[in-house]
């Protein structure tokens, strides 16, 4: 084994690390353990649990997973299912597929259409959540909404977007909102493919589908994995649908982050809220581990 050579002596190195380490401990590690501890208590913001919280063991967790209520509306299991649908349809199918299609459509083409579409997608991505949510509420409103005005103008019936098909509404919203990231990532991935590959394919008479399947997808596979993992994590934790539907009607759009907020900050039940937070943290950790191991495998195959 080669001798480890360092620029700085170990002690000096640690000294330089200290400020960052202190911040990480103070703002990430300690709160993490605090949340873990709270999740085993009946701590609350108001009521007796605020003055004298006590240890309740696994009660909070058992209540979350109580088989009788698990899948009822407004309960943890139902919320997890909603989150799963939301991630699958808005992130994996919506954002990633649409992003890939847009990137592929405009690949090696320059036109004002490309400029316009890309600019609009990026604008949708960068404007602040609250502004966007307000715009979408106005867009989807049943009586006064822009979308229903357009539909009635075309002679079509009005749709009760936020009450009738609330899941579809937030899925459309999140797809619209986040496609830019996938599009940009795939555009740059496509840009890294040597043109000679595609030119050779053209000479041999390959059609567009064959080129996509045999050349492009294999070459940008790692980018796709990165994209999928990142948008899964983001979508899993996003809170923005709250600004449009509030989690309703009747909890039908209550993704896990909204459930956590309702339990912890509307009902002030910190113990139970922390328990949900812990489980979300574990799920995120699982996603992150998958991501890291895939990255490592990529390094190894290079």
């Amino acid at each position: 084994m080669p001798e480890r050579r360092t620029i700085l002596p170990l002690r000096t190195g640690l000294l330089f690390l200290a400020p960052a380490a202190i911040f990480v401990v103070a703002f990430i590690v300690l709160p993490f353990f605090w949340v873990a501890v709270v999740s085993f208590t009946n701590r609350s913001l108001t009521g007796p649990g605020a003055l004298h919280p006590h240890f309740v063991g696994l009660t909070n967790y058992l209540q979350l997973f109580a088989p009788r209520t698990f899948l009822q509306p407004g309960q943890f299991g139902s919320s997890l299912l909603i989150t799963g649908q939301f991630v699958l349809f808005s992130a994996l199918i919506g954002q990633a597929v649409l992003g890939l299609v847009l990137a592929w459509l405009f690949y090696r083409r320059e036109s004002w259409v490309k400029q316009t579409v890309q600019t609009l997608a990026i604008v949708a991505w960068i404007i602040p959540d609250v502004v966007v949510a307000f715009a979408w509420s106005a867009f989807l409103d049943y009586g006064q909404g822009t979308l229903n005005h357009i539909l009635t103008g075309l002679g079509l019936p009005r749709v009760d977007w936020l009450l009738g098909v609330p899941m579809l509404s937030i899925i459309l919203f999140n797809t619209w909102r986040g496609t830019a990231f996938s599009m940009l990532l795939f555009s740059s991935a496509l840009g890294s493919i040597p043109p000679s590959h595609l030119e050779t394919a053209d000479v041999t008479g390959a059609n567009a589908w064959q080129k996509l399947r045999d050349i492009i997808l294999p070459l940008i596979r790692t980018h796709i994995v990165t994209d999928l993992i990142l948008i899964t994590l983001w979508t899993f934790n996003t809170f923005t649908p709250f600004l449009i539907t509030g989690g309703g009607p009747a909890f039908r759009t209550e993704v896990v982050s909204i459930l956590t907020y309702r339990i912890a900050f509307k009902y002030f039940n910190f113990g139970s809220g922390s328990a949900i937070g812990m489980i979300m943290m574990l799920i995120n950790l699982a996603f992150a581990l998958v991501y890291l191991s895939l990255l490592r495998r990529r390094e190894a195959t290079r």
Partner: peptide
């Protein structure tokens, strides 16, 4: 009641 019993 909720605020008083919570010491707030």
């Amino acid at each position: 009641p909720e605020f008083a019993s919570g010491g707030l």
